[in-house]
């Protein structure tokens, strides 16, 4: 594969990473509004277990974004890394 082709591939792959990050935000929005939010009453009126469950699930959604992005970077580096030496 020529250098130019590989450069184009990395650009497309980076745009793919941006797309995945965006879809994860939309997916997390769906899970938040359809699953997490209906769990019990409004946060201010919730009892402790309901409050803890909702906040924990919301934080879990945020954490899942980071886990997936880390996995994608690992796949990216594995796909494009080649041995080079720095000067």
């Amino acid at each position: 594969m020529s250098g130019t082709e590989k450069n184009k591939e990395t650009l497309l792959a980076m745009m793919g990473i941006v797309t995945v990050a965006w879809l994860l935000i939309l997916g997390a929005t769906y899970v938040f509004f359809v699953i997490v939010r209906p769990l019990g009453p409004e946060l201010h009126g919730a009892n402790l277990p309901s409050y803890v469950t909702k906040v924990t699930l919301t934080l879990g959604l945020g954490a899942s974004w980071f886990v997936v992005m880390f996995a994608i970077s690992w796949l990216y580096l594995r796909a494009f890394r080649s041995p080079r030496t720095s000067s």
């Binding site: 450069n7 184009k8 990395t10 980076m14 970077s73 494009f80 080649s82 080079r84 720095s86 000067s87």
Partner: peptide, 28 residues
């Protein structure tokens, strides 16, 4: 790092941070 060809190259140093730029430069 800046190579002798006056182009920017991705470092292969394991201690170097993974940046957006380094990821782009893995393509050449």
């Amino acid at each position: 790092f800046l190579g002798d060809d006056m182009k920017l190259h991705a470092s292969s140093d394991a201690k170097a941070p993974t940046t957006l730029v380094r990821m782009i430069l893995l393509g050449g």
